[in-house]
Nucleic acid binder design. Sequence first.
DNA 1: ACCTGAACACCGTTCAAGT
DNA 2: ACCTGAACACCGTTCAAGT
Lengths: 192, 192
Amino acid sequence: MTPRDPGPTRAAVVAAAEELLESGGPSAVTLRAVGEAAGVSRTAPYRHFEDKADLMQALAARTLETLAARIRTAAAADGPRTPLRRGSTAYVRFAVEQPHHYLLIFGDAPLADPRPEADDGMLALRELVERGQAAGELPAAPPRELATVLWATLHGLAQLRLTGHLHEPRTVDGATGLDGLVDLALDSLRPT
Amino acid sequence: MTPRDPGPTRAAVVAAAEELLESGGPSAVTLRAVGEAAGVSRTAPYRHFEDKADLMQALAARTLETLAARIRTAAAADGPRTPLRRGSTAYVRFAVEQPHHYLLIFGDAPLADPRPEADDGMLALRELVERGQAAGELPAAPPRELATVLWATLHGLAQLRLTGHLHEPRTVDGATGLDGLVDLALDSLRPT
DNA sequence: ACCTGAACACCGTTCAAGT
DNA sequence: ACCTGAACACCGTTCAAGT
């Protein structure tokens, strides 16, 4: 709580940025607003982050971990559907629930650091694919490439929806909206 | 050529914005730069467009038409591959060739007008799907939803690539990079 | 009707100065 | 080492004034 050592200020800055992003979207995250919400001046963040992009990347790293955890938790849960289907649904649901955070990690803005971890952070999807292949749910294509195709499909559905290009998907096969499209995509991916 | 009637100025503004977008990306498209490049003041565009978003939407509409034409032209061409595969490849190639224009129409920025034409502008993809179904290349799912899934996959591959999240896709089955992933996606979509 | 120049309310970032 | 306040170079947009 004491604003002396670097820890609290840095944590307060990150927390302020995260809250502003969630409540007001990316345009609400200005260093002026962040400083005010964190109780410091608008230039104080420069002592803890190189620039604004560096601060946003710290948020992105946290979000990426949360997304991977959601996928793995959903895949590990019980239920009539397969782990592949539960994990895929969890992906698009996370995007819809946290649109600004999702677009922060996979939106247009080129993250300063094109770190491979981001892709390998999508290792959770690779796990889903390998389980799906073992269960005979998916074609016997190279897992890495097949995971990329699955990622692209889930991301495409989510991003088009969040950006307003895909308006209110209709009910498909009893499932509603995006979930139904995810199921349709997985139904269409047949094993060899 | 005479800068008297509204036509030339408006056309010059659009042309200037288009050139700036292609050469310098979205951050280079400022009304000041547009005005200078068009030979008018920076506030002159306000006589022809409501605001900057309105100007960008005029560019987006043109780009959308170009993309649809590319898909249809590729599908109508001759070659060993099917129309579905040629059209799908043409989609991602357009995105890679014109990254800024592609992200203008399907990127994060919510177009002011969430017009249904954008989706129906993707009617070209719907046509591909219906031809693919008739040829026994695709599952017998509802064409509208299947076209959405195809769109999401192609868009996902393109957008992740353009934003740097998908770096240099490896060679897949002899085809290179993104084209190989498009082929893999279509290979995995099996008819019932 | 179209255009201009100054002005306004914002940004991110830099830097000399303080503790 | 950390923080501050003023300053700089940008934005989009508005508006009174000109032709």
